[in-house]
Design a protein around this nucleic acid. Structure first.
Lengths: 121, 121
DNA sequence: CGAGTATATGCCTTGACACGTATATACCGT
DNA sequence: ACGGTATATACGTGTCAAGGCATATACTCG
């Protein structure tokens, strides 16, 4: 059982689809299979990978297994991504400043129904 | 030039290392090479992938190329991850409720230096 | 122009992984 | 206990990408 990083896990499109499916509520393998039009063995294998990586957990319900999300690995991803958050917020600020200036420049002329910018906090 | 999803790009550990390096400031290929102790061709190839995926951009400085981060792909990742954000905040809430109850139960007994929970919004 | 430096690219090998097919395991209702 | 349903696993195969090595390109300085 290899220890793969959360990043490698979510690199696979089908796995991301499964994860997104599970947001609404827990699902059985068969339900996932039908909704994603994916062979059962494929679904089961991806679920295994997801389970071993901690993205999902399952409980037994008769002959079904119900899979649901677990938060931890998502947190890990978020922590990593957080390093870069300054990056795009800075960028958005710059964009807003730019738009504000444009608005200012044109404010004397025609006042169109431009959506109001909210002021920076 | 294949169009790979941002997820596949960041699945590679060396690429994540490069991205993290570039947070502080733009760097030349040689600087990256030295800091990450990675062969130059490897660095160049990863940079190519990162550039084609929009994670970085470069400018020419004599015979050097300076690479710096671009925000867009990170945004895309954040948007995806955002779907799951309810998940772990819900989880934290549940934990807080639990701890609150524990505190309540033990409030009559010993009042330890447990870090105060902030009240839920 | 020639040597040196910085970076990019092409080819090849190897390993990982996603998928299909077949099969095993487990639980249900009758 | 048996047939049916639900899920997991084993094996073989094709694909693709990362890395090593060699080489190409481009710029600089003397």
């Amino acid at each position: 059982m290899r220890v793969e990083s959360a990043f490698e896990i979510i690199a696979e499109p089908n796995r991301r689809a499964i994860l997104s499916l599970l947001i609404s509520s827990q699902q059985s393998v068969g339900e996932i299979e039908r909704q994603l039009r994916m062979p059962q063995t494929t679904v089961s294998k991806h679920l295994r990978v997801l389970r071993e990586a901690g993205f999902v957990e399952s409980t037994v319900d008769a002959q079904r297994r119900l899979y649901r999300l677990r938060p931890e690995p998502f947190r890990e991803l978020d922590v990593w991504l957080d390093q870069f958050r300054r990056l795009w917020s800075r960028h958005v600020d710059a964009l807003e400043r730019h738009l504000d200036r444009m608005e200012q420049i044109h404010s004397s002329t025609k006042r169109t129904q431009t959506t109001r910018r909210r002021k920076k906090k």
